[in-house]
Structure formats: structure tokens, C-alpha cells
Design a binder for these strands. Sequence first.
DNA 1: CGCTTCCTGACT
DNA 2: AGTCAGGAAGCG
Length: 286
Amino acid sequence: MPELPEVETVRRTLAPHLEGRRVVDVTFDDPRVARYPTDPARFAARLVGRRVRAVGRRGKYLRIALDDGGEWIVHLRMAGRLLWHRDPERRERFQRARVTLDDASAVDYIDMRCLGGMYRPDDGEGGRGTPAGLVGLGPEPLGVEFTPAVLAARLADRAASVKAILLDQRTVAGLGNIYVDEALHRARLHPLRTGASLRPGEVRRLHAAIRAVLVEGIRAQGVSFALYRDGEGRPGEMGERLTVYGRAGQACYACGETIVRARVAGRGTAFCPRCQPAAPRRAPRR
DNA sequence: CGCTTCCTGACT
DNA sequence: AGTCAGGAAGCG
């Protein structure tokens, strides 16, 4: 569920409450959430007593820097939420863990499907316990290192669909199903176009579209279809601003054609068949 | 490279 | 009862 704009919104809403605070207690209601160390007691022992330096983000990973140089990492996957509050009596349905801070506030980890989890890697950058996906993650799409040339290099010679390539976090960090569909529509590219088929001008369009939809998503504090909330429990408003995702059967805002839904890269995919024509048959000029 | 799997709930 | 869900590791 949460993609880069949603995770960034959680980061921004949690940071003022967490930074400078010391962890005084960690409890797990579901031990599966402790991804590393996998023993909840050991996880708690490694987090209790630490002070939060900064709440950061890399792709869809929340990286919470601690005063011992290590970090506490959270990945929300499909249905995870982090909720900060001051009510010790509060208990959300599907609450899986609680981290209590030294001002008596708490951060609850809530996850209906239990696909997400928390990591407390051994010390040192990329120490044991660092989630595998964080190693080899592609560039931050809103950072200076993500350029049209970098994107072009990652699309070149690829037979896979541009949708599958963009969903791969090694290509660029933080895109998920919603923002990929939105970016492809904005760039007027059919999701089944192969990476190798994209001409330089199309790659530049895609690069700009990716940035634009993510910036808009952050500004709207993310998409809240069902479960997503920010760190203080508020829904985002990006769901009302989507142009293709969730709009199958409705008219394209750009051309009036009916938005269709198909399965691409194993995912439900919405696109406009007129704005996003299928791949040209001829090989691209170089 | 695409497909399956993890998990649990909501919807048709 | 069957299908689907915004993620991503693992498999063939």
C-alpha cells in the first residue's frame, strides 16, 4: 500500500515526535514483525535505551537513526501503518508492536496482513540484519542522482515491460503499483512497452513524469484507499487526484477515452488506450 | 523474465 | 466460493 509519498508522509509526521526521544520499552504482540533480530526479546533489548537521532527514509524504508550509530528500520509492505499517540490505553485492531518513548508517548506498528516488519541491524552500515532490499536499492527518484541518463541506462536492452522495470526497486527506489501507473499515463507510455523500445525523448518524459507524480503525491500526503494513514492517523488526499489508478471504466481526463484495466507484470494495471498506445512495431532509431 | 508465495481481510 | 489487494523475495 504505502509507496514513496506515503512513507515520506509518515516520516514527516513522525519525525518531530521521535527525534530526541529515548526508547523505554518495546513490546511485540506478534513475533513475526521482528524481522531481525527475529527473537522479540533480543530485538527489544537492542532498541530499549537508545535515543532517536533522526527519522529518515530510503525508498519505501523508514530508517530511524539511533544514538549508538545503528538504526531501527521499518518496512510497511502492503498494509503496515505506524501510529504515534499519547494514549497508553489505545490499542488498534491488528496492532503488532509498540515502542514506548521517554515522554510516555508511543509508536504502534499496525499491520493486518503481517507482511511488513521491523529491523534492528547489527552496527555498521549494511551490518547483518539489514533488509536485503535496502542493499542494491536504486537511486532516490527525487534526488540529484536520478537523471534521465541513469533511467535510460536501466531501461536499455531490457526485454521486460517498462511497468515491471519500474516496479523493480533496483531501477529506482520507492515506486509501487499506483505511482507507476500514474507516471506511465503522464508520460503517455503503454505499460507493456519494453525497456529497450523506449526512445530518448520517451525516457525523458518518463523521468519527468515519475518526479511529478511523486511530488504531487507527497504534497497531497499520499493515497489512502483503505488502510494507509500518516504517523498521526490522518488519511491523505492523493486518492482524489489519481488519473488512471482505480479509474477503470471512467473517462480519461486528457482525451475522454475509457480507462481500461489489464494485468501487467502480475499486477492490476490501469491505463488509457488512446493516450498510451502500444509499442511501435519497428525497432527504435538510435 | 514472469509467476508464486507470504498473510489476512474485503468484496463480488 | 472465488477473486483481489498499493510489496517484494524466491523460484523455475
